[in-house]
Structure formats: C-alpha cells, structure tokens
Design a protein around this nucleic acid. Sequence first.
DNA 1: CTGAAAGCGCTTACAG
DNA 2: CTGAAAGCGCTTACAG
Lengths: 334, 334
Amino acid sequence: MKTVPKSAIEDVARLSGISKSTVSRVLNNHPNVKEETRRIVLKAIRKLNYKPNLHARRFASGYSYAISLFLPEIGTQFYGRVLKGVEEELDEYSYDVALFPLLSQERLKRFSNPHAAAYQNDGFLFVSLDPEKLHHLNPFPLSKPTVLADGYSEKFDCVYVDNRLGGYLAGQYLSSFPGEFFIILVEEFEFPLSTRVFGERLLGFETALKEKGIDIPQRNIISVDFSLGGGQIAARDVLQITKSPLNIFATCDLLALGVLEEIRGAGLSLKDEVRVIGFDDQPWAKDYGITTLHQPIEEIGKTAAHLLMERIKGNKGVTKAVSFKPKLIKRNSA
Amino acid sequence: MKTVPKSAIEDVARLSGISKSTVSRVLNNHPNVKEETRRIVLKAIRKLNYKPNLHARRFASGYSYAISLFLPEIGTQFYGRVLKGVEEELDEYSYDVALFPLLSQERLKRFSNPHAAAYQNDGFLFVSLDPEKLHHLNPFPLSKPTVLADGYSEKFDCVYVDNRLGGYLAGQYLSSFPGEFFIILVEEFEFPLSTRVFGERLLGFETALKEKGIDIPQRNIISVDFSLGGGQIAARDVLQITKSPLNIFATCDLLALGVLEEIRGAGLSLKDEVRVIGFDDQPWAKDYGITTLHQPIEEIGKTAAHLLMERIKGNKGVTKAVSFKPKLIKRNSA
DNA sequence: CTGAAAGCGCTTACAG
DNA sequence: CTGAAAGCGCTTACAG
C-alpha cells in the first residue's frame, strides 16, 4: 500500500529520493545544498515539469516574489524600455513585476488604501513619479523597500539621468552655430503626475546659451504634445518665424524626427541651414541621423530594479542616488 | 491563562464571539449567514481594521481573486477608459485586475510560458488583441475563462463596437454635404498586435459614399500617428489638396481635434466650408463641438469584465458576442 | 445557519 | 548538508 503524494513537491521528493525540505532548498537557491543533490533534484523537477504553486510559496514564505512598479502610463517607448530593463534585472532574482499605471488624477484614489493589492508586494519602484507628492494628503506606508527611477527624492534610492546637463550640452553645441534658437517642449502631465524632466532640459539649454550671451525669446519656446505630429507642427510654426539659419533643440527624438520630416519637406538643407538635436538616442535615432543626447533608458530601469532587490534582500545602507550623464551623439542632423 | 490568537481572523472571531468559519463566510459573502451574525462580524472587522491576508486566501481557496488583462499598451485614453470600466465591474466582485501590456513583438515571448504569472489568475481578458493570433506558434492554455474586448473571435465571448457601422454612419451623413471627401486613419501596430478597427471604419465609410455614387481617391486617404499633431498635420495636407468645401472623417476624436485646430487657424468656416467627424465621443469632444460617433468605451470594459466574472463563477453557456452600435452625435463640427 | 477540524502546498527553524 | 515536523492564515466539506 503506497502512500499517495499530497503535493507536487512530494512527487519531486519521491522521484529524486530527496526530502521535500531539500527540494525546497534547491528551488530557492539555498546555498547549503550539495552540488550533486542539487543536480538530482533539478533532474526530477525537469522530468516532472514541476512548477511550484505560486500562491503556496507566497503564503508559506511571506514573500510575494514580485515588486510593484508605479508609473504615469505605459505606451511610450520610454516606459517600455524602462520596463524592459526592470524585467531583465528581476529575471535574475526570479522576481515578477506588477504594473500600476496611474493614468489619471482621479484614478489615484485607487491607490490611497494601504491594503490595496499594489502594496502587497515586496518592494515599490516609482518611475517618473514622486511618492511623497502623490500621497501628500494620504501618505501610504512606504515602510517597504522603495526606489525611484527617472525622478529624485532625498528619502529614497534614486536612479535618473542628469537632464539639466543634457540640455546644457545641447545648448553648448548648438550655440556654436549661427542663427536663431528654438526649443520644443513636451506638455507635462498635471500635478501630481508631473515631472520636471523637460523643464530641466530647458533650464540647461538656456544656461548654455546665456553663457554665450544668447537669450532665447519666449515665442521660440514651443510646447506640443508628445508625438511625431507634434514635432511636425512645431517645425511648421518655427518655419513661419524664420526660414534659416535655424537651431532647434527638440528635447526628445520623437519630436526631432517630426521636425526633420518637415525640414526636409520644406527643402531646407540640414546642417547648413538647420540644426536639430533630439534627446534619448532611441534605437531608430541612428537610422534617421538624429544628433541627440544619449541616455541609457534600460539601464535606468535595470539599476533601479537592482537597488530595489538589494533593499529587499536586506541592505540597510544609506540612501543612494545614481545619476547617469547624458552624452552628445553627433550625427547628420547637427 | 488566555490562549494567544494565531491569526488575525481569530482576533475577529474572538472579539465577535463567532467562529472563524463564519467570519470567513461573512468575508466571502456566503449567502447562508444570519443577517445579525453578519452585522456583528462586520462590526468587529471594522473595529480591528482587519484585512484578510491575500496570499493565505489565494492559497486556501485556490482562487487568485484577480483577472489578467492583456492589451497592446496603456497610455491612450481609450485603454484608460476600458480599464476604468473593467475596474468598476471587478470592484463588485472584490476582484483585482493585473495588467499585461504586450508593448512589442519581441516582448511576446515573456508570455509564451504557460507557467508565467499572467496565467495564474482566474480569468483572462484580451483587449484589442486576438489570443489565437498571438499564440499561433505557441498556444497557451486558454482553459481558463477568457473574454475579448474591442475584438472578435468565434471561440470566446466578445464585446466590441460595430466599427464598420460607425464608418457607414459617418459616410452617410457627410455625403449629404457637397465637396470633396477625406478620411484620416491611424497607422496600425504590426502583426500580431494589429487590430482592424480603423480599417473597419474606412470600409463602412467607403460603402456609404459608394451608395451615393462617390468614390474616394487614394490620395484622400491619409495615415498619421495617433496624436493631436497627427491630426494637425493631416489637415494641413488636406488643405494643400483642396481649400473648400471639405468633408473629413477623422476616425477618432483626437485626430478630429487636431484637424479642427488647423481648420480654424486657416480661417475656414466650420460647417459652411468644412465638415469634420470624429469617433469615440471622448468626454472633451462636447467642449470642442466635435460631431462624432459615440461608443461606450467604459461599457465595453465593464461588460467584458462582467461576462468574464460570470464565466469564473461557473457559467458554461454558449459563447456570446455583445456588439454595441455607435451613435452619431451631431455637434458644431458637422 | 454555525462550529470544529482538516487541509491547501509550500518554507523554515530545529535537531542532527 | 539533510530530514521530520511544525506552521504560514485562511477556506470548506462535514456534521449538526
């Protein structure tokens, strides 16, 4: 009379002839397991195509094996790339990411309850968001490990790119050319979803120009929506002000691409008459010859996820900020 | 010597003087609980601010109390509103939604593993996506309840709007005006993330025009990116072809708004010289006087979530398709 | 309608 | 380095 295995992990234990305690240790990469034992267990796991019951693991261990990622939205290439970096890093720890796009101000109240599912995970990653600003009325328990990406705060580990420096580098380079100067900005989300990213790039740009004694008039600062068409429309507006020579800091590659399309359509010659600089160095920027500020977007996500995982694993060190320096990549457009 | 409660639910049981079995029944809205008992228990729950341990519930019940929502991206108003409808409905069942934006073709492989976290939930909702197309190489187990929204398939319950009819209604109405006809389309995602939504609207539009003996030339079919700027740029292109009278079907309100901005900028008079029709009837369409096809976006999400929850609760009925009829809302722009 | 008890499938001190 | 056993906090037949 053979005993019936009660759980899947017992099947593995039986087949491998190893206790389920040790099978569990193998599953969790526990260091104190003999190499040969590990091999035997892994073989049985493969043979049975065993996957541990996620809910049982979470319950028994007290870990969710997942982090919560808060972001304004998902749909732009930026957040897709941040997410890619985050997922790459989490894969190393066999952790999952649960996505919580805020989307709108009114939807924020879904996150004001500290018992919300979003707060049941082992750590929180805020992208382009300030948790303190979000919860200034209704502070939620940030007692769990928390890291910011594409944002800055004194209280938490942060990973971001120096946007002001990026704007400065763009301004420094563009100001070596003759002609009029323009900057195209993206309209920000409303508080509290706003970030200062584009404002920072503007500040750096203005600083660099000012150092050369150049003032940029208000009408040369153009705001559009974040889209190809936005860039195109901005370019048409620019061309109504001056024909050439022109120097345009588009503050992101998507706008720069829209600008370039219009410039070409208008028959102006790039570099000679018009200079355009983007920001991001998206994978396709090279194909279009866009001069731009490179920022390591996946790396931001990856680094933030890494810091967060270290916190989850128990790192109690002082708060840390990682700032990446953008790099000017000179190509055809300037 | 009082016994120490081992779990939070036991605190509630003790305080209310009711067994934890019954406390659990109250928590799960079990019908067979005396009204007074329920009241007593709820009072104790409130007093202790008790929230059940989610992981324990999932483990013990075998339910995750969550559904997985697959969509191309999140960031456009459309998906935000679908999600809103889904969340509203799920709140009724105390269910959560886990978001899985596919984002890119290469990212699809994250979802090819049937053990992926996305498939651990109680049901699947696909928005603007065809699960069979997604998994034609690597079919994943759709043995759990599955519903489609903004899409159609023979195999699953579906909820969608009749886009072809919408296009037809736009064409029927616009064709009563004199002048030239234009249609502005949104460029689709690449396979397998593509949907036929805008293609359907085009088909309906062409059918209506054809019935009046009108053929729409190829150059009057303009594709742009989904953005305000896209609409503006399309309008400028239209104005280079003909000045007036013009009839433009913009296929969504965002494009229509961009078109209107350009039309006004060009000094043309709406209705007399130019007619513009959008699609969606977004909340702000009224403010801008956009004539449009109304579609109940939240309702699509809500209905899809409802069908899914009924399936999860055990409904084994035949597959069902719910199709909403778009409605022409006449306002200032046409 | 309610309670005592078993059980969900893992993890983890504890002892060896 | 490994195993036997207790335990994680709920749900749910089962009996009444």
